[in-house]
Design a protein around this nucleic acid. Structure first.
Length: 110
DNA sequence: TCACTGACCGTGG
DNA sequence: ACCACGGCCAGTG
């Protein structure tokens, strides 16, 4: 593989690393992660990175990553559509209609 | 090789 | 206040 693949892979690792740093009971947004890692990437890339997160070790708490509205947009990509909500509720986060209540209060920044 | 899609976000009308 | 569009990068058909 060329070094471009290495850069791309590193990008994924950066996203996973940051998401893994999210403490229990806290959440983060895609755009926030993108800007925290590098302003050169967009929130979409973060989402794509999460697409492979379920196959990465150690496991990435993707359930703590939501969109700007605090909505569980990616819940459909989990093992079960309710898994994301269940996990967040277990961490003390209240979810209503796939949306995090007091999202700003649970928002974690690097 | 080209085109479309995708776990998004920000701005304009 | 609500709806619509563009931009970002990568992967797959």
């Amino acid at each position: 593989m060329s070094k471009s693949s290495t850069d791309t892979k590193d990008f994924y690792q950066r996203v996973y690393a940051l998401v893994r740093k999210i403490p229990s009971g806290k959440v983060c947004s895609y755009g926030l992660i993108g800007e925290a890692l590098s302003a050169k990437i967009s929130a979409r890339m973060v989402g794509w990175a999460m697409n492979g997160a379920h196959n990465v070790m150690p496991p990435v708490p993707a359930h703590r990553v939501v969109n700007r509205n605090g909505m569980l947009t990616g819940k459909h990509h989990f093992a079960t559509p309710t898994l994301m909500q269940e996990l967040l509720e277990q961490e003390g986060i209240e979810i209503e209609e796939d949306c995090i209540l007091n999202f700003q209060n649970h928002l974690w920044q690097p």
